[in-house]
Simulated assay, not measured.
Amino acid sequence: MRQVITDIFAFILVVGIGSTLVLDGWAVLLDKVAGLTPTNWGFVGRWLVGLSRGQAVLDGANTAEPSRAEKGLGWAFHYLVGLGYAALVVMLYGTMIISAPHAGAFIVVGMMISTLAGMTILMPGMGAGFLGAKLPNQGQKIAMMIVGHGVFAAAQFACALALAQLLAP
C-alpha cells in the first residue's frame, strides 16, 4: 500500500509540475515568435484575492501592475491547478494509469476539462465573460486556449509515460 501511495504522489508531482512547465514554455515561445502575450498570473492572483472578499469577477478598474504577492499567489495557483489536474487523472482513471498511461485520459482531463474550466471559470472571473464573450478577439483566444491545453495534455501524457518507464520493474 505504501508503494501505491508513493507512486500516486510521484505521478501527481511529475505530471502536474512537468506539464505545467511545458505549458509555460509554450506560452514563452508564442510570446517570442508570435507576440502573443501569455496569461498574467499576477492578475489571476488579484482575482483570487477578490474572491476571498466575495468579488467573483475581477472588475478591471485596478489596472496597476500586480504586486509581488498577487504575482506569487497567481503563479502558485497556476501550479496547484496543474497538480490538481494530475490528481484528477488518477481519480478518474484509477492507479493503473500510473503504470499504463493512455492518451485518452489526458485528452479528457488535460485538454477537454481544463479548457472548459478556463473558458467557464477563469475567463468569466477575469472579466472576459462566459467563453470570453466580452473579448474583441474571442475566437482567437478560444483557439489559443484549445491549442495551449492540447500542448498541456500532450505534456501530461509524455510525463506520465516517462514516469511509467522509471517506475517499471
Rank of each mutant, 00 (worst) to 15 (best):
residue 1 M to N: 08
residue 2 R to T: 02
residue 3 Q to L: 08
residue 5 I to H: 14
residue 6 T to W: 05
residue 7 D to C: 04
residue 9 F to A: 04
residue 10 A to P: 02
residue 11 F to D: 03
residue 12 I to F: 13
residue 12 I to R: 02
residue 12 I to D: 05
residue 13 L to F: 15
residue 13 L to D: 07
residue 16 G to P: 01
residue 17 I to C: 02
residue 17 I to Q: 04
residue 18 G to R: 01
residue 19 S to P: 01
residue 20 T to V: 04
residue 21 L to H: 02
residue 21 L to F: 10
residue 22 V to Y: 13
residue 23 L to Q: 09
residue 23 L to S: 11
residue 25 G to N: 13
residue 25 G to H: 12
residue 25 G to A: 14
residue 29 L to E: 10
residue 30 L to Y: 02
residue 31 D to L: 11
residue 32 K to F: 15
residue 32 K to R: 15
residue 32 K to Q: 13
residue 33 V to W: 00
residue 34 A to G: 04
residue 34 A to S: 12
residue 35 G to C: 01
residue 40 N to F: 11
residue 40 N to C: 04
residue 41 W to Q: 12
residue 42 G to V: 09
residue 42 G to Q: 12
residue 43 F to I: 03
residue 44 V to E: 13
residue 44 V to K: 07
residue 47 W to K: 11
residue 47 W to T: 04
residue 49 V to C: 05
residue 49 V to Q: 10
residue 49 V to G: 01
residue 51 L to W: 12
residue 52 S to G: 03
residue 52 S to H: 06
residue 54 G to F: 08
residue 59 D to L: 05
residue 60 G to L: 03
residue 60 G to P: 00
residue 60 G to V: 00
residue 60 G to N: 02
residue 61 A to Q: 07
residue 61 A to C: 00
residue 62 N to W: 06
residue 63 T to Y: 02
residue 63 T to S: 12
residue 64 A to C: 04
residue 66 P to C: 13
residue 71 K to C: 07
residue 71 K to F: 14
residue 72 G to I: 06
residue 72 G to Y: 09
residue 73 L to S: 02
residue 78 H to Y: 03
residue 79 Y to M: 00
residue 81 V to W: 11
residue 81 V to L: 12
residue 81 V to C: 05
residue 82 G to F: 08
residue 82 G to E: 10
residue 82 G to D: 09
residue 84 G to L: 05
residue 84 G to M: 08
residue 84 G to V: 09
residue 84 G to R: 09
residue 85 Y to Q: 02
residue 85 Y to R: 02
residue 86 A to S: 04
residue 87 A to M: 06
residue 87 A to P: 00
residue 88 L to K: 11
residue 90 V to Q: 03
residue 94 G to D: 09
residue 95 T to R: 15
residue 95 T to E: 15
residue 96 M to G: 08
residue 96 M to K: 13
residue 98 I to W: 15
residue 98 I to T: 06
residue 99 S to K: 14
residue 102 H to P: 01
residue 102 H to R: 15
residue 103 A to F: 15
residue 104 G to N: 05
residue 106 F to V: 05
residue 107 I to C: 00
residue 109 V to M: 11
residue 110 G to P: 06
residue 110 G to Y: 13
residue 115 T to W: 14
residue 115 T to E: 13
residue 115 T to D: 10
residue 116 L to G: 12
residue 117 A to H: 08
residue 119 M to I: 12
residue 120 T to R: 05
residue 123 M to R: 05
residue 123 M to W: 01
residue 124 P to D: 03
residue 124 P to K: 06
residue 124 P to C: 01
residue 126 M to R: 03
residue 127 G to K: 05
residue 128 A to Y: 06
residue 129 G to V: 00
residue 130 F to P: 00
residue 134 K to S: 09
residue 136 P to M: 06
residue 136 P to Q: 11
residue 137 N to V: 02
residue 137 N to F: 05
residue 137 N to I: 00
residue 138 Q to E: 12
residue 142 I to S: 08
residue 143 A to T: 12
residue 143 A to I: 12
residue 145 M to V: 08
residue 145 M to L: 15
residue 145 M to H: 08
residue 147 V to N: 07
residue 147 V to C: 10
residue 148 G to Y: 14
residue 148 G to V: 03
residue 150 G to I: 03
residue 152 F to R: 06
residue 153 A to V: 08
residue 154 A to N: 02
residue 156 Q to W: 15
residue 157 F to P: 01
residue 158 A to P: 07
residue 160 A to I: 02
residue 163 L to W: 15
residue 163 L to V: 06
residue 164 A to D: 01
residue 165 Q to V: 03
residue 166 L to V: 02
residue 166 L to T: 01
residue 167 L to T: 00
residue 169 P to A: 03
residue 169 P to H: 10
